[in-house]
Computed example of a mutant assay.
Amino acid sequence: MPDGIRLAGVGDEAAPGLADQIGAVAELGWNRLELRTIGGTPVARLDERAFRGAAERLRAAGTDVPAVASKIGDWSRPVTGDFAIDLDELEVLARRCAVLGTRLVRVMSYPSGGLDDAEWGRRAGERLRELALRAEDHGLVLAHENCTGWAGERADRMLDLVTGIGSPALRLLFDIGNGVAHGYRPLPMLREIVPYVVHVHVKDARAGTDGEAVFVPPGAGQAEVAECLRVLLRGGYAGVLSIEPHIALRPHLGSGTGDPGAFVAYGRALERLIAGIGSAGGGR
Rank of each mutant, 00 (worst) to 15 (best):
M1P: 08
M1L: 10
D3Q: 07
D3E: 12
A8S: 15
V10H: 02
D12F: 04
G17T: 08
L18A: 05
L18R: 07
D20E: 15
D20A: 13
D20Q: 13
Q21N: 07
L28Q: 11
G29K: 13
W30V: 00
R32Y: 03
R32F: 05
E34L: 06
I38C: 03
G40I: 11
P42A: 09
G53K: 10
R57A: 15
G62I: 00
T63K: 02
P66S: 10
V68D: 05
S70M: 04
K71E: 11
R77K: 11
V79L: 07
T80Y: 02
F83V: 14
F83Y: 12
A84D: 15
I85G: 11
L87A: 15
D88G: 13
E89F: 00
R95T: 06
C97G: 01
C97P: 01
R103D: 13
R103A: 15
V105G: 06
M108F: 15
S109Q: 04
P111K: 10
G113W: 00
D116T: 05
A118V: 15
A118D: 15
A124G: 14
G125R: 11
R129G: 14
A132C: 12
A135R: 09
E136K: 10
W150S: 02
E153S: 13
A155W: 06
A155G: 04
R157E: 10
R157P: 05
R157H: 12
M158C: 10
L159I: 14
L161F: 02
T163I: 14
T163R: 15
G164R: 09
I165A: 09
I165R: 09
R171W: 04
L173T: 03
F174K: 08
D175Q: 01
G179Q: 03
V180K: 00
V180D: 00
H182E: 12
G183Q: 05
R185Y: 05
P188M: 07
R191S: 09
I193P: 07
V194A: 14
V194S: 06
V197A: 07
H199A: 08
H199N: 12
V200I: 13
K203D: 06
D204W: 04
R206M: 10
A207P: 06
G208R: 14
D210Y: 03
D210S: 14
V214F: 05
V214C: 13
G219I: 01
G219W: 06
A226Y: 10
C228Y: 13
V231H: 00
G235P: 03
G236F: 07
A238C: 06
S242P: 06
P245E: 02
I247N: 01
R250F: 02
L253H: 10
T257Q: 15
G267E: 05
L270P: 05
L270M: 06
E271R: 12
I274E: 03
G276Y: 04
G278C: 09
G281E: 07
G282L: 03
